[in-house]
């Protein structure tokens, strides 16, 4: 009996069709790609937002404060729905205004855009704190030597803030991988959605949800290890935090 269930479980998870392994792996790849895109977009928004909050004018600062507050107060699920419809509508309105036909935005692009905007709000706060932790003397020295602002950011501020920002960014990356599961609610075929389809078709709910959980866990544990290495690299040459 036990051997039978074990073999049928393995059969269900096989890579080629009667098994659903290929579907799960395709879902995992979609999840990882969306998480990468959203994390990248979020980091770009975060650097821009952090500079805006630190050095921008009063209006820009207040607008960024509203952005980060609203995004962090409203559930991601609600934001995903609002932004999904709003982004699709806005693009189509612009296309219609230009005399083009309306298009269907792919779930992939919409997912990256929506999760990237959410990530950007959190990344703004993380990177703002990290920039503040850069020793003021370094920035002043560079300014005193007449370094232009762009070069200063690229050579001094951003590399120095990286070691302080990486723990927060690692956390954000883990949130990004887990937030991709929310796209299942709008029906996009990432890992959780593929899992639900496989489980629904075969009625083997425990098998598939456990397998997907294992995949998510492997992803988060391996990326935790990678981020720990990256942090050690970014911290090279700096004194140890604790002796």
């Amino acid at each position: 009996m036990l051997a039978l269930t074990a073999s049928s479980t393995l059969e269900l998870l096989q890579y080629s069709p009667p098994g659903w392994g290929a579907n799960l792996l395709r879902g995992l790849m979609n999840s990882v790609l969306i998480a990468l895109g959203a994390f990248g977009l979020g980091a770009v928004i975060g650097v821009g937002g952090a500079y805006g909050k630190l050095y921008g004018g009063p209006v820009l600062r207040d607008l960024l404060a509203i952005y980060t507050t609203v995004v962090r107060a409203v559930p991601e699920l609600v934001l995903i729905l609002i932004l999904y419809y709003a982004v699709t509508d806005a693009v189509n309105q612009i296309l219609l205004g230009l005399g083009q036909d309306r298009i269907q935005i792919s779930g992939f692009a919409a997912g990256i855009a929506v999760l990237g905007i959410v990530q950007g709000a959190y990344a703004t706060e993380v990177i703002r704190g990290a920039i503040l932790s850069v020793p003021g003397g370094q920035v002043e020295a560079a300014r005193a030597m007449g370094m232009p602002a762009g070069l200063l950011a690229r050579r001094i501020t951003l590399p120095l803030m990286l070691s302080a920002a990486l723990p927060g960014l690692a956390n954000l990356w883990l949130i990004a991988t887990k937030d991709t599961a929310l796209l299942a609610v709008v029906g996009f075929g990432e890992l959780t959605q593929e899992t639900r389809q496989a489980a629904g078709a075969t009625k083997a709910y425990f098998t598939f949800f456990m397998a997907a959980g294992g995949l998510y866990l492997a992803l988060s544990i391996s990326s935790g290890w990678l981020f720990a290495r990256a942090e050690r690299w970014a911290r090279r040459g700096q004194p140890e935090l604790r002796g």
Binding site: K178, T192, T195, R196, Y205, F209, M210, G213, I221
Partner: peptide, 11 residues
């Protein structure tokens, strides 16, 4: 902490 809440809920 390593798996999405949605997945746990559905499981």
């Amino acid at each position: 902490r390593g798996t999405p809440l949605l997945l746990q809920l559905w499981l």
